[in-house]
């Protein structure tokens, strides 16, 4: 066997932790999609050489502490208001790369207004939208994107449209707005999907720097604690239940 021992040296390195990911251990639950998506964001910023130019806007929700994990300047926004905060940062620093990182509660419930209007104004920002169909941080309540029949802390008998309304595809709605140049739905539940998602994210960042308008990258994601499943089972459940309703792929690309 010894003849095939791989030597640990820089020229043999094929994949390492991005430099912009801090040493701090993430507070996310084991297997949480946030960690993988954070890594993609860090990689894209690094590869585009934008570390000194990027300002992130973190939301309210589990990813409020995104600022502890990616080594760039951050501002933490009030619940739902990230797109408004990002609007001002980008308008005042047009040469900077500005993105928001928001969950489904932040973007699609309390922040619907700010998100839609930032799209409509065509702000040159990237909106990273994590849709796991549940409120993770507050303990697993219904999100606007919770699937029909899905059980959460506030839909203990399953989401009933008569009581709770329907899940909605805000990314599809946003695609109708003229200020938006790119909308795509991605996931990170398999290595292939992670690689595709990174390409999409990079395109979104390039759009923002080129002043083409707003780009939104939706990640259909898991919340294994909220869904009460193991990380691996959550990925499977997501594929079987979430993806048929939230199909992956580009929704708008101009």
């Amino acid at each position: 066997m010894a003849e095939f021992e791989v030597e640990i040296k820089p020229e043999n390195l094929v994949y390492g932790t991005p430099k912009l990911i801090t040493d701090r251990i993430m507070h996310y639950c084991p297997g949480c999609s946030h960690g993988t998506i954070h890594k993609l964001v860090a990689e894209v910023i690094e590869e585009m050489g934008l570390a000194e130019k990027t300002i992130g806007v973190s939301p309210v929700g589990c990813s409020v502490f995104a600022y502890n994990y990616i080594d760039i300047d951050w501002v933490q926004a009030a619940h739902g208001r990230a797109a408004a905060v990002a609007t001002a940062v980008k308008r005042l620093y047009p040469e900077k790369m500005v993105f928001t990182y928001q969950g489904d509660g932040d973007l699609a419930a309390i922040g619907t207004g700010e998100s839609i209007h930032a799209c409509n104004r065509g702000e040159n920002i990237v909106v990273i939208y994590i849709n796991n169909a549940i409120y993770g941080m507050t303990g697993g309540q219904m999100a606007p994107t919770t699937l029909l029949g899905m059980k959460t802390a506030t839909t203990p008998y399953g989401r009933d449209p008569k009581l709770h309304g329907y899940p909605y595809k805000i990314a599809d709605m946003m695609a109708h707005l003229d200020g938006v140049c790119y909308i795509t739905r991605q996931s990170v539940h398999t290595p292939v999907n992670v690689r595709k998602a990174k390409k999409a994210l990079r395109k979104a960042f390039e759009n923002a720097m080129a002043g083409k308008g707003l780009s939104l990258v939706e990640f259909v994601a898991t919340c294994n604690s909220g869904w009460k499943q193991s990380p691996v089972a959550s990925n499977r459940w997501m594929e079987e239940n979430m993806l048929p309703f939230y199909p992956l792929g580009d929704i708008k690309d101009i």
Binding site: R81, A84, T87, R91, L92, G113, E114, H117
Partner: peptide, 20 residues
């Protein structure tokens, strides 16, 4: 100068600008 969609948005734009 930005006409925001609400006072909620405008004060949060102020927050973002002030942060810079």
């Amino acid at each position: 100068v930005v006409q925001a969609e609400s006072e909620v948005a405008s004060i949060n734009m102020v927050y973002g600008g002030a942060a810079c």
